[in-house]
């Protein structure tokens, strides 16, 4: 192969590689930013102004495997006919309530299908605060688009190691 052709190939290969690496970094940085929740839900307003607890909306965090994303029925308890605030986002909720349509929340925290995860076991048995995995929602004024603690085996196992709970594969995998 003539030398010039080889250099040309090298340049093409390295530029493709660089583009791929940059793309990968951009994707990692912006992971989740593309998520647009149907309503710009403000956790802080609900916790501080309305004085609500996590389990008021995520009703099964203490007694079931899944904490559940609130259904329209839960929102309806407060937002039924008249708006309680001046927020334009609340009008969207009222529209969902009027149309009797569930709000299509996008789930951020999802445990893979081959893993058994129970909120009840962690919250009641393990005495974990919600903040340990979900961060301080008191300060969250924007809708949630990324996981505070990404659901990875590394994160699970680190916490299990620190708290001296079983790291046996069968404790979580199924």
């Amino acid at each position: 192969m003539p030398k010039s052709a080889r250099t040309r190939n090298l340049i093409i290969l390295s530029s493709v590689g660089t583009v791929l690496v940059v793309l990968f970094i951009v994707v990692r940085l912006y992971a989740g930013r593309g998520v647009v929740q149907p309503i710009a839900y403000n956790h802080r307003v609900h916790i501080e102004n309305a004085g609500m607890q996590c389990t008021d909306c995520h009703v099964h965090a203490k007694d079931m495997a899944s904490a559940t994303v609130p259904s329209l029925e839960v929102c309806q308890n407060c937002h039924s006919a008249e708006p309680v605030s001046k927020s334009p986002e609340e009008l969207k909720v009222l529209k969902y309530v009027a149309d009797k349509k569930e709000i299509p929340w996008i789930r951020i925290y999802e445990v893979p299908e081959h893993v058994y995860f129970s909120h009840r076991r962690h919250v009641i048995g393990g005495k974990l605060e919600c903040e340990a995995c979900h961060g301080n929602m008191n300060e969250q004024t924007q809708p949630v688009t990324t996981a505070f603690l990404p659901v990875t085996m590394e994160n699970c196992m680190n916490c299990h190691r620190q708290r001296k709970v079983s790291n046996d594969c069968l404790a979580c995998h199924r």
């Binding site: 058994y116 129970s118 009840r120 076991r121 048995g125």
Partner: peptide, 14 residues
Amino acid sequence: CAHRLQHVKEVADL
């Protein structure tokens, strides 16, 4: 049926 053990252990622990 190890998945059943996961469940009964959770109940017994609670």
